[in-house]
């Protein structure tokens, strides 16, 4: 007697065919970004002239981000081309930095992995961490009615949230456009305290009496710094993320990180 096949057999075969087909299709490359870079043999990195310790401008020790992307390029079999662009960070609006797809494959040296940044770029977070910090001799912000110098920086931290919070605290803001104006406001006493992004604070020439402290974590979460890639360059992003993963597993990232003291770069108050 001929044995009847199991009643779920046909259904299982149909489903298996569909799953195998879709899984195979999910490996198709959705764009040509990686293929184009491999054809050119070059990975172009755009960075500002200086954003220590992520970018130093020193060819012997070029900075954490530059070395990291260099190692990634090596993993991908590409030559790293660093484009140092003074326009980066020259204006609050990144549109005015005039960074184009033609100039850069990867943007680094001061990008925080925030919603604002991800509105324009795809990001891969690195181990460096940032956030808003306060600077004052007392290690805290002044009481309501006090004055605070603010240097927003260009890493993509939420400036609107900061300004709303400062209004709630009834603190008067002294806006500053660069590090020099910021330190001058603090030193002259025009501002009783200052607020800026943590890496900017770490690079400032502050007096020994000034203490650096994080703003409240519940209102201002810390963000990882990131490498930025153009939206839509998915195959390149996947390849870079995978290369970074391998570098992390091999301990190479830890080596670069410890050379630049990325995690201990700013000395916070206890």
């Amino acid at each position: 007697m001929k044995r009847r096949p199991h009643r779920w057999l046909q259904a299982a075969v149909n489903l298996a065919i569909v799953v195998v087909l879709l899984t195979a299709l999910s490996f198709l490359p959705p764009d040509t970004s990686l293929k184009d870079r491999q054809a050119a043999g070059v990975l172009k990195l755009c960075v500002p002239p200086s954003y220590p310790p992520l970018v130093t401008g020193d060819p012997a020790q070029p900075g954490f981000d530059v070395e990291l992307v260099g190692a990634v390029a090596e993993q991908l079999g590409l030559r790293l081309l660093v484009n140092t662009l003074p326009s980066i960070g020259s204006d609050f609006n990144p549109r005015n930095w005039s960074l184009t797809r033609g100039q850069c494959d990867v943007i680094a040296g001061g990008l925080a992995d925030t919603v604002q940044t991800r509105s324009f770029l795809q990001t891969i977070p690195t181990s460096a961490e940032t956030g808003w910090v306060g600077i004052s001799p007392t290690g805290q912000l002044p009481a309501a009615g006090g004055t605070v110098a603010v240097l927003p920086g260009t890493s993509g931290l939420d400036r609107l949230a900061l300004s709303g919070w400062l209004r709630e605290q009834q603190l008067a803001v002294v806006p500053t456009r660069n590090a020099q104006q910021f330190t001058e406001a603090l030193q002259s006493g025009r501002a009783q305290a200052g607020i800026t992004e943590s890496f900017v604070a770490g690079a400032l020439n502050l007096g020994p009496d000034q203490r650096i402290f994080w703003l409240p974590d519940d209102r201002f979460p810390h963000y990882r710094m990131a490498l930025g890639m153009w939206k839509g360059d998915q195959t390149l992003k996947t390849a870079i993320a995978s290369a970074l993963g391998e570098l992390e597993r091999s301990g190479a990232v830890d080596g670069i990180e410890s050379r630049y003291y990325v995690k201990q770069y700013i000395t916070l108050s206890p």
């Binding site: 764009d31 609006n93 990144p94 549109r95 005015n96 930095w97 005039s98 960074l99 184009t100 797809r101 850069c104 943007i107 919603v115 991800r118 509105s119 324009f120 770029l121 930025g228 153009w230 939206k231 839509g232 360059d233």
Partner: peptide, 14 residues
């Protein structure tokens, strides 16, 4: 929909 100039995209979602 991909980015061409940093700070300029056709739709602003992350």
């Amino acid at each position: 929909f991909r980015g061409e100039v940093y700070g300029e995209v056709r739709y602003v979602i992350p």
